[in-house]
Structure formats: structure tokens, C-alpha cells
């Protein structure tokens, strides 16, 4: 009976030491982190641009010592696609500037 009590006491002590040291709690927390990571990766995968190419095109309004610079940066799957988009964007921007000025 005495032995049983000692073993039970030891087990109880081990349990409380482990719990107090936090080795169970971080385990749950790690699991939660893993779940969040997977969720984040899924969200990223949904928004991801496949193997992209970034193109920047610039135009300007030249007043001599003062300049207004217009830039369009586009990212697309291919450089060709990105360039087409950037050209379209810049053309529209320059037209807007012309409309404002003239």
C-alpha cells in the first residue's frame, strides 16, 4: 500500500512537473501554428502569380527643371504579357495627362 502511494505520488509529481514546464501546452500551440501555416499556404497558392515577369514603363511631363514622372509596373506570367499590360497602362496614363493639360 505504501509502495502504491509512493508510485502514485511520483506519477503525480511527474505530471505536474511536465505540465508546469509547459511541454504539453507548446505541443498544442505548435499544432495550431502548423494548421495556420497550411491555411496561409493555401491562401497564398490561390493568389499566387505563376512564375511572373515584372515590367516597368515610364513616361514624363517635361517642364525643364521640373518633371512629372508617370510609371506603370505590371507583373504577368510572361514578359510579353507584362509588357502589353504596361504599354496599355502607360498609354492611358499619358492620354490622361494630355487631356488634363490641353
Amino acid at each position: 500500500m505504501k509502495k502504491v502511494s509512493v508510485v502514485t505520488l511520483m506519477m503525480l509529481m511527474m505530471f505536474s512537473t511536465t505540465y508546469a514546464a509547459g511541454s504539453i501546452k507548446p505541443g498544442i500551440s505548435n499544432l495550431k501554428n502548423e494548421i495556420n501555416k497550411v491555411k496561409l499556404e493555401n491562401v497564398q497558392a490561390l493568389n499566387k502569380v505563376p512564375a511572373g515577369c515584372s515590367v516597368t514603363m515610364k513616361g514624363k511631363l517635361d517642364l525643364g527643371p521640373i518633371e512629372a514622372e508617370v510609371s506603370c509596373t505590371t507583373t504577368a506570367a510572361t514578359c510579353n504579357e507584362a509588357t502589353i499590360q504596361a504599354v496599355g497602362c502607360l498609354r492611358a496614363a499619358m492620354n490622361t495627362l494630355r487631356t488634363i493639360i490641353y
Binding site: 525643364g64 527643371p65 521640373i66 518633371e67 512629372a68 514622372e69 508617370v70 510609371s71 506603370c72 509596373t73 505590371t74 499590360q85 504596361a86 496599355g88 497602362c89 502607360l90 498609354r91 492611358a92 496614363a93 492620354n95 490622361t96 495627362l97 487631356t99 488634363i100
Partner: peptide, 23 residues
């Protein structure tokens, strides 16, 4: 005027306007 005058229909990218001065 530039911000309220975007005539690029279908443009996925918005242009950015920056100003520079010699002095």
C-alpha cells in the same frame, strides 16, 4: 485630376505619378 481621370479600361495596374525638381 490624374487620380480621378483613369481612362484605362481593363488595366490591371494603376499608374503612379511622381514629381521631381532640380532645386
Amino acid at each position: 485630376s490624374f487620380g480621378s481621370n483613369s481612362d484605362c479600361i481593363g488595366c490591371q495596374t494603376k499608374s503612379v505619378l511622381k514629381f521631381h525638381s532640380w532645386e
